[in-house]
Design a protein around this nucleic acid. Structure first.
Lengths: 389, 389
DNA sequence: GGCGAATATGAAGAAGTGTTGACAAACTTC
DNA sequence: GAAGTTTGTCAACACTTCTTCATATTCGCC
């Protein structure tokens, strides 16, 4: 409840704080004039001017000299956040693929690469695919590892404080993999490993279906069901990183739910087990009776866990995402109805708008958040020391 | 994700920030010398000296002139947070009683008063008891309503943003009661209504069994079971104030759980229904077979909901509190065992140390938190305008 | 094409805040 | 009583921001 050491602010620190303020005011905005920044921050024009010049000297901002302007009066010089000062990597290590993204400090994705992996691939093979995907992203964008300021990797299963998925993982042999150690040799920046559902939740809140909400439950629906929680605008990991793992409770039927789709009668033998669910959804869409029943049962089971989360946390929005979100048209209405039956106060239910990229995008967002905390909370300084979480 | 308007810091604001820093450094510490404050805040001695004198002039601190000192050197003047500058009221409106507490700005409880109420009393009677309890606390401590800077009232059931328990309440007619309106005439300070479980959780984290933890699930166990959630050190209300209401899910057997105790065979007819649970616990403690079974079943049902919360949020500690916490000796071990069976990562399970006062104490804490936010976040100013939450 | 209005830039002076260093005051210890 | 130590106070200094004014550049209008 107490801070213990509360730090006073002296003059140099004041300048630092205001520099941070200007950087924040520069980000997430189009190139701005000194006057605009002055209005945005409440600081006087000369103060902003001085700070902006220093930011340019330190590489945090670039100048756009006055061009032709449409307004009356002398055209203003504009300052712009130098989003190319550093880059971040976001990677989604899935069962069938590894997807890597490079983005600049604005979160603009510059390049992506997808490497296919066999579901039963051993850790070595999967790590090789990871290395390949990262390597391809770097060479395609002509970046060196030193240009990367943070890396986030999304994996399935709860991630502990050492970056391992020791409690549970569907990837064979993966519980022994130490991802930060694997990458530490190549990158000297922060390397973060995080649960895929949590990352997807971040992505939806960033530029997806939940961008207007601060209390979000993201349900990742696929052959495995998981959840990510955002409360008061912040991703909640839980004390041991296992928040959202409601599926482990037997009374909540998340473990069994996908079997309704897998074992649905009428699925042709030619359809592989991996594609069975998609087939069932498609069949249900065309009125197949057995398929409709299977979907209905699936939704009923899904709803129990979602209701438990909703009742526990009372969110504003529930996002239905993951591989099955393509079938949101079949699921959203009955899911909402079930929640209405089970919950006290029913949140909005929406379909994911980011689809398959959400995990990697969320990884980008988490990497940027980490940088924010490191660079902007204390002082403006370039890439931080390597750390693991 | 963005702040929108990020405020720059000018010189007067700098002084304000440092004044706040000094006030914070003064609170939660014994009377301090300027040198101590200087070390604690990193500010220079003259700066602290000046600020401290201003704080005294504004009524936020008092001076203790140098007495005889045991150390070498000139004895130092000491400054002390003036905790008697204002007071807060915390009230617990329960089924059988209304308990009111007055505390100073340090959270030191000065007086408490308990007014008995019949379980089936109508809102008028209950409000009269509330008024009586508050009145008694004020007269006993010789305070006027104007001395009260914040009031918090704890009630059963989820509290919406208008301070009403419209979704559910066990108190007859209480869903129509507008507590802020009822008190607004007498107090011009912030009046907050909050769910009792949430307040009890706050109390346990403040000075109870969870004072070392930042991620806490508090389970209030009585004839009605509820929960309060503290995540990252902050009480979470949920978007609509209904966080923690996992008991509403049928698969979670919290609604039915107490019936095992109520309907336990062997309870003498002389024991009133209200005391049945206590009798069963006592009988179980002495080896009564039926009572032990009842307790065991109760714990099993309780554990399902607790497990759902634990899996959803992955807390560090679960606090077992409420009326039944006196029987923690019988419950803690089997509850822990059940959680071990049901959960992925098992948190510590502890018994409440505050007992029956926890709700009113939590109300005090929430009132103080509200004051903190109002007075200390923006600027140092005396009692704020009346508001409702 | 010239003029005025509007906006941006730049520089100087003023005000406010924190820091450093010095010194007297007050107390303990030898 | 002298030395040593800590405190309270003061003045000089450094730094940051604010205010104000003069200057520069551009557009629109005559």
């Amino acid at each position: 409840m107490t801070d213990g050491a509360v730090a006073g602010v002296d003059l140099p620190r004041l300048r630092e704080l205001n520099s941070l303020t200007i950087v924040r005011a520069l980000r997430d905005h189009p190139p701005s004039t000194v006057t605009e920044l002055s209005q945005r921050t409440g600081l006087s024009r000369p103060a902003v001017d001085l700070i902006a010049q220093n930011l340019v000297a330190d590489g945090w901002a670039t100048v756009i000299e006055a061009g032709t302007s449409s307004a009356v009066g002398r055209p203003a010089r504009r300052y712009q956040f130098r989003s190319t000062a550093g880059y971040v990597l976001g990677v989604d290590v899935g069962v069938h693929k590894v997807l890597a993204l490079v983005a600049d400090l604005n979160g603009e994705v510059l390049h992506s690469h997808r490497a296919a992996v066999a579901a039963d691939a051993d850790p070595q093979a999967r790590l090789a695919a990871l290395d390949e995907a990262i390597e391809e992203c770097l060479t395609a964008t002509k970046k060196k590892p030193a240009d990367v300021w943070a890396v986030t990797i999304g994996v399935t299963g709860p991630v502990d404080s050492s970056g391992r998925t020791s409690l549970f993982t569907p990837l064979p042999g993966w519980d022994q993999v130490d991802l930060p150690a694997h990458l530490a040799g190549r990158f000297s920046c922060p390397i973060i490993v995080e649960n895929d559902c949590k990352l997807a939740a971040l992505a939806e809140r960033w530029k997806g279906a939940a961008s207007d909400a601060s209390d979000v439950i993201y349900v990742l629906a696929g052959m495995r069901i998981g959840a990510g929680l955002i409360l008061d605008g912040v991703l909640r990991r839980g004390y041991g990183g296992a928040a959202g793992e409601i599926g482990a409770l037997k009374q909540v039927r998340w473990l069994a739910a996908p079997s309704h789709l897998e074992n649905c009668p009428g699925v042709p033998a030619s359809v592989s087990p991996d594609d069975a669910a998609a087939w069932v959804f498609e069949a249900a869409r065309h009125g197949d009776r057995a398929a409709k029943t299977a979907v209905s049962r699936y939704v009923k089971d899904l709803a129990v866990g979602a209701a438990a989360l909703v009742l526990a946390l009372d969110p504003q929005v529930v996002i239905y995402g993951g591989g099955f979100s393509r079938s949101a048209d079949l699921v959203l209405a009955p899911l909402t109805a079930e929640l209405q039956r089970l919950c006290l106060r029913v949140p909005e239910v929406r379909a994911s708008t980011l689809g398959a990229d959400s995990v990697a995008l969320g990884a980008i967002r988490l990497a940027l958040n980490e940088l924010d905390n490191r660079l902007f909370s204390t002082t403006l300084s370039s890439p931080a020391a390597p750390t693991v979480r």
